[in-house]
Every structure is written in C-alpha cells, then in structure tokens.
Simulated scan of single mutants.
Amino acid sequence: MEIARWDHWYRIPVKHAPSDYLADYLAFYLTEAFGDEKWAIHEYAKVRGHELVRRVDLFPDEADHPRANEPYYKMQLGPLQRLPRPIPSLRWRRITFIQTTGDRLMHALEIGDLTARSDRFVKLLETQEDLD
C-alpha cells in the first residue's frame, strides 16, 4: 500500500490477473496485516495506465527473488481516494478481484454488496461519472 500511496503504482502478477480486461479504477481490500483497517476497503485510485514488466524491473534489488523474471502488470495510479465509509467484509473471504460499478462502490455497506451473486473473480471497472 505504501507504493500505491506514495509512488502511485501497484503490481499485479499476470498469472493472477483477470484475463478479459484491466480496470479503470482499483480499490484495495486490506488484510489482517493492516490492523484497525483490516478486512475492509477504505481507498481506491484511478488507473492512469499500465505496462507489462518483469518483477525484477519493479524491484531491481531483489534480482534473486524466485519470481524475479515473472511478468507483472505495473498499474500506474492517481492519488488514493478515501471512500465515504469503509466497506467491511462481514465474513472471512479471500478476495482477488471484484468487478463492480461506481454506484455500488460508493453505496456498499459490506463487500457482498459489490457484486452480483454470480460474479466470482472480477475487478473494479468504472467510469469517472460513476465515481464522482
């Protein structure tokens, strides 16, 4: 999150990325490592572009990393924006990508409100009008 917040980019391993399209916006679900903000979405950012790079291109000082030569999407981001209220997960879940609308993102009371029940692995894909 520090890279997204201060350097305005985020990495997604190609092997875990959705295969049909990349998002216009990314929202970040925080895990237990984030203390009081865990298990919720608090922030999102506009995707300003992306490029395909190797992990070692992102972290040159980790050339010996086991995934150093694997491909990643480097998503260039705008500034992180706080949601009007956090979107918590009311039950434990592993979240990869969730596709939703800006309206759902801005009005969700819990993670389950973001997707249609048939969605499985999706990502945030929004238009500017939806998020303003």
Rank of each mutant, 00 (worst) to 15 (best):
P88A: 06
M75I: 15
I111A: 09
P18M: 05
R55G: 10
K46C: 01
H107C: 03
R82S: 12
F34E: 11
I98K: 10
L90F: 10
S118F: 06
Q81N: 06
L105E: 09
A108Y: 02
T96C: 05
Q99M: 07
I95E: 08
F34W: 11
A45E: 02
Y29P: 15
D113N: 13
D57W: 04
Y21D: 09
S89N: 10
Y72M: 06
D57Q: 14
L105H: 04
F28M: 03
F28Q: 11
K74A: 00
D64K: 04
N69S: 13
H65P: 07
L77T: 03
P79C: 00
P79H: 11
H65C: 06
R82D: 08
P13F: 02
H65E: 14
E37I: 01
V47F: 05
E70H: 13
L77N: 06
P18D: 05
E62A: 09
L109W: 07
K38F: 00
E110W: 00
L52G: 01
S89C: 10
E43G: 01
H16W: 12
A27S: 13
A45Y: 00
A63V: 10
K38M: 08
D103L: 13
D113I: 07
Y25N: 07
G49K: 01
P79N: 12
D64M: 07
D103V: 14
F59D: 10
R120V: 15
K74Y: 00
T96I: 08
